Simulated scan of single mutants.
Amino acid sequence: MDLFGDLPEPTQTCTPSTVRLNDSKDGSHGDADQDGARKRKQSSSDAEEAQEEVKRVCTEGLPALRGFVAARRGERDEMQDAHVLLPDMSELLSVQPRSVSRLSYFAVFDGHGGARASRFAAENLHLNLARKFPTGESENLEKLIKKSLLDTFKQTDDDFLKKASSQKPAWKDGSTATCALVVDDTVYVANLGDSRAVLCRMDLSEGQTKPITLSLSKEHNPTMYEERMRIQRAGGTVREGRVLGVLEVSRSIGDGQYKRCGVISTPDLRRCQLTRNDRFLILACDGLFKVFSADEAVKFVLSILQTQDSDGADPEEGDSGPDSGLDSACQQLASEAVKRGCADNVTVILVSISFSK
């Protein structure tokens, strides 16, 4: 399990220590009690105002994120994918850590055996994460974020399995999960199964600009050595690349009948600090990556954006607004996957990344 496999990180940071909080102490007695209370109230108010100023200053240096989604049923009878776009997740937290200025969440879920597991995860995983997210003055915030993500996936899986087993007949649905949690300028990706997350970063070295594709997720299938060994130690078998010859993934939410065979809900976690050279993040189910490599998907999006930048308008929508090209690129990428012969459901989330100049 690759917990927090770090990717290349820049040194850009936002340090709230430049703002000093006022501290007022009162040692008066008798008739000065009311004045002391007023001073303490004012001190608290000043501290809150200063903290808000910290967050305002820090937010100004953070990347602007805009999320777009495209979903295609393909040749399937049912759309079993689900997705979530939450550019501002902060409002779901009861108490937000003072060191955090912005929280965003994007996720794609690819269901199998039905759509109930993917829909359940889409409806509940971010709510569980909001409840488990670190609060107050949190030291070692990254370690606590890791723990909250691990606990969130376990809680979501346990809750779904409990609900699934109570049905008559029991639900046998399962789902992959690829979730991107953006905390200020750092993205944390937690994933199960074969849905993926990739980042487009522009390389400006040697006087040329060229795209680099960074993988922010790890696929889980039973043909991988570590995954196969875990399944076999649990008493399961891998036949024709599948658990018991049936299940294509070795980690998932749901799939209660395979949990005794070594199928787990523990995600791999990756962390990457965003830079001014980053253009966009792609989260997609395997329906996209069956017909696109990660590099091809990134270059496909870039080609559309470059074409529309040169044209100055979106030829399909007739809209030259700032989001039209990004939305069109997302829609065209999903449509192209179907055109290339993917019969599976295809869901693509495109998250644009831009820093103010």
Rank of each mutant, 00 (worst) to 15 (best):
G254S: 03
V95E: 15
Q34S: 14
A197Q: 04
P315C: 03
A50V: 03
M1S: 11
V84Q: 07
E248Q: 12
P267R: 01
L3M: 10
R116I: 02
G312P: 05
H220I: 06
S148M: 09
G318V: 05
E91I: 07
T275W: 05
L129W: 04
A107P: 00
R98Q: 13
A70E: 04
Q257K: 09
E142N: 10
S320V: 07
D314F: 05
V348D: 00
I349Q: 07
K132N: 13
P63Q: 05
L216D: 06
C285Q: 03
K357W: 12
A177D: 01
T18E: 12
R271E: 07
S354Q: 15
D255Y: 02
L214S: 05
P222W: 08
S175W: 00
C330P: 02
D194C: 06
F300L: 04
C58V: 11
L305W: 03
V243N: 04
Q331L: 13
V57S: 03
K339I: 07
N128E: 12
T59C: 10
L333G: 00
V187R: 01
D88R: 12
G312K: 07
S205T: 15
R230M: 06
K147P: 00
T275H: 06
D344G: 05
N191R: 02
P8Y: 09
D23Y: 13
D255C: 11
G235M: 08
K39Q: 14
V57K: 11
V346S: 05
R20I: 14
A64V: 09
G341P: 06
L214V: 13
E9M: 11
E137L: 10
T59R: 15
D23M: 11
L181T: 01
F280D: 00
Q12N: 10
E226W: 06
P211N: 12
R40V: 05
F280K: 01
L281F: 06
Q331H: 11
T152N: 04
K25F: 14
A190S: 13
E52C: 04
C342K: 02
P16L: 09
A130G: 04
S165P: 00
Y188I: 02
R230D: 04
G245K: 10
R196P: 00
D309N: 14
S354C: 13
P8A: 08
R270A: 06
G61A: 11
N191M: 03
E60I: 06
T13S: 13
R270T: 12
V95Y: 10
D159K: 07
T266G: 04
V57A: 07
A197Y: 04
E206L: 12
A64N: 08
L129K: 02
F292K: 03
W171M: 04
C272T: 12
R73Q: 15
T209F: 10
L350S: 01
L274E: 05
T307I: 03
V291I: 07
A37L: 14
M89I: 06
L283P: 00
C330W: 01
K25M: 11
K162F: 06
S101H: 04
F300T: 01
S293F: 10
P222V: 04
R242D: 08
K290A: 09
L150D: 10
G111T: 08
D157V: 05
K299I: 09
I353V: 14
A50P: 02
T15W: 12
K168H: 13
Q80F: 07
S265D: 15
E78D: 09
V249H: 03
V246W: 13
I231T: 02
I212K: 15
V348K: 00
G36H: 02
K154Q: 14
L93H: 08
Q257P: 01
M89A: 15
